[in-house]
Design a protein around this nucleic acid. Sequence first.
DNA 1: TGCGTAAATGAGCGTATGATTAATAACGGC
DNA 2: GCCGTTATTAATCATACGCTCATTTACGCA
Lengths: 244, 244
Amino acid sequence: MSMPDPAAPKPRAGRRKDPAAPRQRLLPGDRQHMILEGAISYFAEYGFDGRTRDLARHLGISQALLFRYFPSKAALIDRVYDVVFLNRWSPAWEQLIADRTQPLSTRLKAFYKDYNRSIDRYEVIRISLFSALRGESISERYFTRIRERLIQPIVLECRHALALAGPSDRPVSSHEEQLVFSLHSTVIYGIMRKHVFHQAGVEDPDFMIELYVDGFMAGARDAFARVQAHLAAKDARANTLATP
Amino acid sequence: MSMPDPAAPKPRAGRRKDPAAPRQRLLPGDRQHMILEGAISYFAEYGFDGRTRDLARHLGISQALLFRYFPSKAALIDRVYDVVFLNRWSPAWEQLIADRTQPLSTRLKAFYKDYNRSIDRYEVIRISLFSALRGESISERYFTRIRERLIQPIVLECRHALALAGPSDRPVSSHEEQLVFSLHSTVIYGIMRKHVFHQAGVEDPDFMIELYVDGFMAGARDAFARVQAHLAAKDARANTLATP
DNA sequence: TGCGTAAATGAGCGTATGATTAATAACGGC
DNA sequence: GCCGTTATTAATCATACGCTCATTTACGCA
């Protein structure tokens, strides 16, 4: 049992550990922005269970500094979500899809080329997945928005372009959404193969998107018609059972 | 400052905390199997950063027992990978795809219906994603196998069924793989929407798969031909540049 | 050149983690 | 019913985590 030596100098907090690397003093706005960008890169790589000490080392700052600019790790993650989800939506997409002065295939090609460019980023696709796997509500809201503002409008444009029978304002069926998702999936999953599964990326993405859209449009009339027939048959069966 | 009371009974390890819930004594094989199944469910829900204490509580056993049956958390995770990746492959798929006694569209419909049924499980799709995001090598090997044993064979069958010009044994191009992946993506991403993004699942999956395959086959001739022309043009350009 | 402000830091707090160990108790054989 | 075997457990360990705080020090301004 030994008492601490009262003559020993008390360790002094705040002293530089490595005098060769001078401490950088930034404007608070710049430092906050730098931390947020670094957090996006770090969490995209290691997931949200990554460590704050490790993140700080990647940033070249002390761990304590993170908590000066963000009250908690959870608050930092929320700001990461804001950047990845909220700031990555172009209102032009919805207008482009609905612009009937151009043929639908032209619109779809232009939309998916731009959409692909916008989300084909390592950080975006991985943080989306990490947050979806965590069951974050912002993630579910984001995917609901994709359905309501992209997929369902495209369904309506398909109905119009194909001049399908039936009232044009009837609700979009799940099956119709799935048809449009077959095109959407191709683009998204191509990006996931690259950034999540580390396979080779899609070469000539703009060229391939033209092929995908032309393939989709070539089969669309038949597919939508069969979906309508399928649903009509289902309805008929349900009515028969309901009034025997 | 008080010394521990020497008269106080020393806490006795191994005693039941809750005598109302009697301790279950299983055969080692059964217990190991039970832990492994529980670990698959647990890690599928919470990811591999989930806690061993939490897993043990889900299983209704003590945390220490996990380490009697698996030397470490990492070893348990490895066994989870074995079950999810290695035991979930049907050799019949490769035979089915290559069986030229049936039309290609029939084979693709049968294959994707079975494939969809096999991997449309919460645990499988989520654990695949968690491990891919971690960059596990078993995950990359698994996706390489999908390319080599499913995607590339389908490309070869497309070449044969469409009677495309060109030597039939030339290497499968990246662009051709991307075309087949457009069909594959539709199935996989539909499952991911359900189990990862918590959206409504695909209704009537078998019916929808028939639509997807028919749509793919309808556009396949044009798409493969344009890919060949695209690559030929690229080659010509490269040769022109190489020998000016 | 010196000084005050506040940005940045090292050390430390309480808790939780993966893993270990000695104590307990369930079950089969007699 | 007793007993030995061993499956199961409570308690504990060393470390790592998110977070706090007193101390240090970079920089703008005089």
